[in-house]
Structures are given as C-alpha cells and as structure tokens.
Amino acid sequence: GKMTGIVKWFNADKGFAFITPDDGSKDVFVHFSAIQNDGYKSLDEGQKVSFTIESGAKGPAAGNVTSL
C-alpha cells in the first residue's frame, strides 16, 4: 500500500535519496528512476512524498514516489 514520509536527503550527483517514513519505520532507499515527476527527477530535503515499498536487489526500496 501507499505510505507517506519526508525526504531525509537527496544526492543529485548519484541520483538517489532516502525517505523517513511517517510510521517510524527505518529510512527507505529511493533511486531516481522511482520518482514520478515529469521532467527532471529530483527531491528536496524535507519534502513530503507518498511511495510504495518494492523489494529490490539490495533490499527494500521506494517505488512510485510522488510529491504531496
């Protein structure tokens, strides 16, 4: 299901971020390909987002990341 959280930090050079979920679970890795914005895919620290949890090769990662 959809979860919500806050972007903890975003590394534009490497194209990934971490989200701190609102439910208090541990921070979730985000690859820029999961960001659903049109055009430039970036996130801002402190931004509120919704996302799903996908199981990636290196463990859980956020999918369908959308700005709220």
Rank of each mutant, 00 (worst) to 15 (best):
D22K: 02
T20C: 10
G24V: 01
V49M: 01
A62H: 09
A57K: 07
G39D: 09
I35V: 07
G15T: 09
G59Y: 07
G1I: 13
F29D: 02
N64E: 11
A62D: 13
S55Y: 12
Q47S: 10
I19P: 00
K26S: 10
Y40A: 10
I6P: 00
I53Y: 09
E54V: 10
F51Q: 00
F51H: 00
L43S: 01
L68C: 15
Y40R: 10
G39T: 06
G63E: 09
V28C: 11
F51G: 00
I53W: 10
A57G: 09
G46D: 02
A34I: 06
S42N: 13
L68D: 15
N11W: 08
N11P: 01
D27V: 05
A12N: 07
M3D: 02
L43A: 01
P21Y: 04
N37K: 08
T4H: 05
A61M: 12
G56I: 10
F32E: 07
L43W: 10
I19A: 00
P21E: 01
N37V: 12
A12E: 10
T66E: 15
G1P: 09
S33D: 11
K14G: 08
V30I: 09
W9Y: 14
M3L: 08
K8P: 00
D27S: 07
G46N: 04
D27P: 09
A17K: 00
Q47P: 02
F16G: 04
D38Y: 08
V30C: 05
K8S: 04
G15A: 06
P60L: 08
F51N: 00
F16H: 06
G63N: 09
G39A: 09
V7E: 00
V7S: 00
G5H: 00
G56V: 12
A62W: 04
K48I: 08
A61R: 12
V65F: 02
S67F: 03
S55M: 14
K14F: 11
G1E: 11
G1K: 13
V65R: 03
D13N: 06
D22W: 02
G56W: 06
F29T: 05
F10T: 14
I6Q: 04
K58R: 08
D38S: 10
D22I: 06
N11T: 05
K41P: 11
Q36V: 14
G63F: 02
P60G: 10
W9M: 04
T52L: 10
D22M: 07
T66V: 14
T52A: 06
F51R: 00
P21L: 07
V28Y: 05
P21K: 01
I6Y: 06
S67C: 15
F18C: 15
E54M: 09
I35N: 03
I19N: 00
S42K: 10
K58C: 15
F18V: 14
S55I: 14
G5L: 01
K58F: 10
N11A: 06
H31V: 06
G59Q: 11
G5N: 00
G15S: 07
V30L: 06
K14T: 11
D27Y: 03
F29E: 07
H31Q: 10
I19V: 07
S25I: 02
F18I: 14
G5Y: 01
T4V: 05
K26I: 09
P21D: 01
L68P: 15
L43T: 02
P21T: 04
G24H: 03
Q47G: 04
K48P: 06
F18L: 12
K26R: 08
S67K: 04
E54Q: 07
N37H: 09
S50A: 10
S67V: 04
Y40G: 11
K8M: 05
G39C: 14
F32L: 13
N11E: 07
M3G: 04
K48F: 07
A61Q: 15
K8H: 08
F29A: 04
G24N: 04
A34F: 11
V30H: 01
T20P: 00
A61E: 15
G63H: 08
I53N: 04
T66A: 06
G59C: 15
A62K: 08
Y40P: 07
D23V: 03
V30R: 01
D38H: 08
G1S: 11
H31K: 08
N11D: 15
K48E: 05
